[in-house]
Design a protein around this nucleic acid. Structure first.
Length: 579
RNA sequence: GCCGACGUAGCUCAGUGGUAGAGCGGCGGUUUUGUAAACCGUUGGUCGGGGGUUCAAGUCCCUCCGUCGGCUCCA
C-alpha cells in the first residue's frame, strides 16, 4: 500500500519535473522552441522539443540549473479545463504544431485541460505534485534524438532525459545503481576479462568468442546437452546456407525478408543465410514418413542464425546479427502439446536456476487479432500451456493478444542480481509451419494427421545469455563457469616445480587452472588474479611445498591451508553442484 | 536507417594549427619475494579510412566506416 502510494507520487513528481524542464527550456531558449510531449517514465522523465539550432550537451547543466531555481521558488501547479477553441487558438498563436496535433488526436467528447506552473502553461491531462518544492532532487541525464510519436517517417525531435526524486539521498541511490550497472557492463568486462570481441574489420554485430569466453560457452553447451539427453532430445546439425526456396515455403521471405541477409547467387541457384533453424529441422522431419509412434520427435541444435538487425539497434552481445540459439523443434500430436510444454518449462527452469537469478516468472501470450487457425484450436493450446504452468508450479501472467500469428507462447523471464528483467526461455506453439510444409504422421487409425510443432529455446541465444550472465555475475563467474578456476602461485622460483605438479593434477582432474610463473611478488600476482576474478588462488611457498599442502585464497579474500586432495574434492563438489 | 556525441599505442587516457605523449601491459635485466601494484631499461602509433583547406592538420572542413546514448513509455 505504502509502496504503491510512493510510486504514484514519484510518477507525479517526475511529470511535474517534465513541465519544469519545458519551462526552463522556454526561459533559456525562447518561446519559439516547439514542444512535443513530456511524460514521466520508469526511471525519470523526458520532454521532446524541436528547436532550429539543436541543443548541445553543454546546454544540459544550464537547463538543470534553471530548473533548480524554479524548484526553489515553490511554484504551485494549477490546472483548469479549457475549451477546444481556446486550446487551439492558444497553440496557433504560439506556433506549436505538435500540440495542435495532440489536440486533434483527443476525442471530441473528452475535456481538455491546461496546467500552469510558474510562467509555463502546457496542455496536460494532469497528475502532478502540488508544488515544485516536492522535487527534492533532479538531474538531467542525456540528450537524444527521438521521432515524433516514435514514427521514423515523422520529424526527428530532440529529447532531454532527466530523473527526479523526493530527496537527494534517493537520487544518490539511483545514481549509485546506474554506476553499478556501468561497472557490470558486459562490453567493458568482455574487454577487461578478454572474453569476446566484435571486430570492426569483420563487421558489426558479429561476435568473436575469445578463449576465455569459449571456455564459458563450452561449459554452457555441455550443460545443455546433458539436460537434453535426459529429456529425450536428438542432436542434429543443419547447414548455415540453404536454398532460398526453403524460406519461401516457410514464408520467411514474404514476412521476414527485411531481417534477412541479402541472397547469395551460386550456379543459377539462390541461397540465403538462415535466419531461423526451423525449416532445416522440418526437412529432417520430412525426410521419411512419420508415425504417431515416432512422436514426440525432439530435434535440437545450437543453431547459428543470421539476422539483419538495423545498425542503430546493435548492442554488444545483447543484440547481434549472428545469433546462436540453443534451439529445438518438437513435433508432437495435439494431445501431447501440454506434456511437451510442461517438460520444456521444467527444463527451462532447471537450467535457469543453475544461474541463481533472483526470481523467475512465466508469461503466457494468447491469440492476437490477426492469427491463423481456428480459435478453438488456439483455446485448447492456450489452456494446455496454462495447465503446464500450473503443473510446473510457477505463477504466470497472461499477455492478452501477445502471441505470434501462428500460435500461443510461453516466455520465461528472470530478474538478475541487480534487479533487471530479462526474457530468456521461450516456448512457442506453431500451427503454421506444419501446414506450409504439409507435415503429416500416420495415426493409430492409419490415416494421415497434422503434427503440432513447438519452437523452443531454453537460454535464448548463447551470445545474449553470455552478456546477461557477465552482467548478472559482474564478471565473477561461479567456479563451474569460470574460464580459469584456479591459479597456482609459487612464491619464489624454488616452488615452480611443486606448482607445476599441482597444476598437472588439476588439469588431469578436468579443472581449468594455470600457474602464475611471472617474476613478480606475491602481492602483485594476487592483485592480477583478483582483477581477473579468478575463484581460487593456490599460494605455494616453502612451507606448502614441504608439507604437500596448498594455501587456498578464495576470490572473497578468505584463506585456508589444506591438502591438495581436499581442495580437489571441494572444488569438484562445488562444480558438480553448480554452486 | 534517423538524431546527437565520440574514435590518439594492446588497454585507460592527455594532447585547441607548429618535432605525437603518460600510466598500465609486452619484452629484457636486477631482485627470490607470504596474500590487491618491487626497481631499472626497452618496445610500442599511417592519431578509424579517404578527400580537402593551410607554408604547416591528431587539431579546421567534407565524406565513408565503427562505437556509444536514444528513436515502445502519449496531452
Amino acid at each position: 500500500m505504502n509502496a504503491d502510494r510512493a510510486a504514484v507520487d514519484l510518477d507525479q513528481l517526475r511529470h511535474t519535473a517534465a513541465h519544469l524542464l519545458a519551462h526552463a527550456v522556454v526561459d533559456l531558449f525562447g518561446s519559439d522552441v516547439q514542444l512535443a510531449i513530456g511524460p514521466s517514465i520508469e526511471d525519470g522523465f523526458y520532454y521532446d522539443f524541436r528547436k532550429p539550432a539543436p541543443f548541445v550537451p553543454e546546454d544540459l547543466p544550464r537547463i538543470e540549473q534553471r530548473m533548480r531555481e524554479l524548484v526553489g521558488k515553490d511554484l504551485k501547479m494549477s490546472g483548469r479545463e479549457v475549451s477546444r477553441t481556446e486550446a487551439v487558438a492558444y497553440y496557433k498563436d504560439r506556433n506549436q504544431p505538435f500540440k495542435l496535433e495532440l489536440i486533434d488526436g483527443i476525442p471530441a467528447d473528452e475535456p481538455l485541460s491546461f496546467y500552469t506552473i510558474g510562467e509555463f502553461t502546457d496542455l496536460c491531462r494532469g497528475g502532478h505534485v502540488a508544488s515544485s518544492k516536492e522535487i527534492g532532487a533532479l538531474k538531467l541525464t542525456s540528450l537524444a534524438g527521438a521521432y515524433w510519436r516514435g514514427d521514423e517517417h515523422r520529424p526527428m525531435l530532440q529529447r532531454i532525459y532527466g530523473t527526479a526524486f523526493a530527496s537527494q539521498s534517493e537520487l544518490d541511490e539511483h545514481l549509485a545503481r546506474v554506476e553499478e550497472a556501468e561497472r557490470r557492463d558486459h562490453r567493458k568486462l568482455g574487454k577487461e576479462l578478454d572474453l569476446f570481441s566484435i571486430e570492426e574489420s569483420a563487421g558489426p554485430g558479429l561476435v568473436f568468442w575469445h578463449p576465455n569466453g569459449g571456455r564459458v560457452r563450452q561449459v554452457l553447451e555441455e550443460f545443455i546437452r546433458g539436460e537434453l539427453r535426459k529429456r529425450g532430445y536428438e542432436p542434429v546439425y543443419t547447414p548455415h546456407v540453404v536454398s532460398e526456396e526453403l524460406f519461401r515455403i516457410s514464408g520467411h521471405i514474404q514476412s521476414f525478408a527485411e531481417n534477412m541477409f541479402a541472397p547469395i547467387d551460386v550456379d543459377e541457384q539462390r541461397y540465403r543465410l538462415k535466419p531461423m533453424n526451423c525449416p532445416g529441422h522440418i526437412l529432417i522431419y520430412k525426410s521419411r514418413p512419420r508415425s504417431y509412434r515416432d512422436l514426440p520427435l525432439r530435434l535440437a541444435e545450437f543453431g547459428t542464425v543470421y539476422r539483419f538487425e538495423r545498425s542503430g539497434t546493435l548492442h554488444g552481445l545483447l543484440r547481434v546479427r549472428g545469433i546462436t540459439q540453443d534451439d529445438a523443434h518438437l513435433f508432437c500430436t495435439p494431445e501431447q502439446l501440454q506434456q511437451e510444454f510442461e517438460n520444456t518449462a521444467d527444463a527451462a527452469l532447471t537450467v535457469l536456476k543453475a544461474f541463481k537469478f533472483e526470481s523467475y516468472h512465466f508469461s503466457v501470450a494468447t491469440r492476437p487479432d490477426k492469427a491463423i487457425g481456428e480459435p478453438e484450436v488456439w483455446d485448447r493450446a492456450t489452456d494446455a500451456i496454462k495447465r503446464a504452468c500450473d503443473n510446473v508450479g510457477l505463477a504466470y501472467e497472461i499477455e492478452e493478444g501477445g502471441g505470434a500469428f501462428y500460435g500461443p507462447k510461453l516466455d520465461i523471464n528472470v530478474k538478475d542480481a541487480i534487479g533487471r528483467d530479462w526474457q530468456l526461455s521461450t516456448v512457442q506453439a506453431d500451427f503454421n509451419l506444419p501446414e506450409r510444409f504439409e507435415l503429416t504422421y500416420a495415426g493409430a487409425d492409419g490415416a494421415d494427421h497434422r503434427p503440432v510443432m513447438i519452437h523452443r529455446a531454453l537460454l535464448g541465444s548463447l551470445e545474449r545469455l553470455f552478456g546477461v550472465l557477465i552482467e548478472h555475475f559482474g564478471g565473477a563467474f561461479p567456479a563451474w563457469l569460470a574460464p580459469v578456476q584456479a591459479v597456482v602461485m609459487p612464491i619464489t622460483d624454488g616452488q615452480f616445480d611443486y606448482a607445476r605438479r599441482i597444476n598437472d593434477t588439476l588439469f588431469e582432474k578436468g579443472f581449468r587452472s594455470e600457474v602464475d610463473a611471472s617474476n613478480e611478488r606475491l602481492q602483485k600476482k594476487i592483485r592480477t588474479q583478483q582483477l581477473r576474478k579468478v575463484p581460487y588462488m593456490l599460494v605455494v611457498g616453502k612451507t606448502e611445498a614441504a608439507e604437500g599442502t596448498v594455501n587456498v585464497r578464495a576470490r572473497s579474500g578468505e584463506q585456508r591451508t589444506m591438502s591438495l586432495e581436499s581442495f580437489v574434492a571441494e572444488l569438484a563438489a562445488e562444480v558438480a553442484a553448480r554452486a
